[in-house]
Amino acid sequence: MIPAGFEYHRPGDIASAIGILQEHGDEARVIAGGHSLIPMMKLRMAEMGHLVDLQAIDELKGIEVGSDTVTLGAMVTQHELITHDGLATAIPLIREAALQIADPQVRYMGTVGGNVANGDPGNDMPGLMQCLNASFELSGPDGKRSVAARDFYEAAYFTAREDEEILTRISIPVPGADVGQAYEKQKRKIGDYATAAAAVMVGNGTASVAMTNLADTPIWSEEAGAWLAGGNVDGCVAAMLDAIDPVADNRGPVEFKKHVAAVVLRRAIDRAQSRAG
């Protein structure tokens, strides 16, 4: 559990951080809260010559709650998401989900940017961001570009982000006040990844549904959302079960996961509907 040696960098602005990435190519990786990367380094499953710590970059911090849009700096911690009252009023789903991530110690360090950028199918925020139709700002040598969360994930740990880019901000449209939201997660214990988790928004004739850790990427299903928007819960669940592709692991076999996925999704839908205006 001792990582191989590496050079440690602590740039003070985004441009410097990108410069380091350009200089060292795939020998370099950025680190945010470190709760995914450091265990991988200790297991020597991730080895890199240069580690670029983002925590001294002020531009990556801060939560802004506008009337139409919420913006989150990539280095905002899960703890900050939970304790920000304005955010909880605008998009209560984020606090509900963040409270189900790991434990308080991890949430003091773990960041929303790291959670969405790493591409780990076990992470909760990617599915949540797809449900909310967030977009990710990527900063690289050629400037900034924006990628929708729903287009960002390609496979486990593979995303639309290029090696020399850093995920810098997250923009989320504020759902209407009468849109009910819910995040439901089944896990074996505190600190575990989801056996199955569902993020649901429904109301005003619209709906959006995404699920976590049931495929090698988060699963947002347009079809499932359409069924739910039309009030057909069974159709929504069936469409989602079609879209997911879980694999067996210590949490259980595929058959179990599919069953639980449907149960968790129905519970999230129930709760979201009960909160809809």
Binding site: R188, R251, G252, F256, H259, V260
Partner: peptide, 16 residues
């Protein structure tokens, strides 16, 4: 008796 093994009991007894 983790979640999936309990689920398996229920499933085996036709409770789903």
């Amino acid at each position: 008796h983790d979640h999936w093994r309990i689920w398996k009991i229920a499933n085996g007894l036709g409770m789903h």
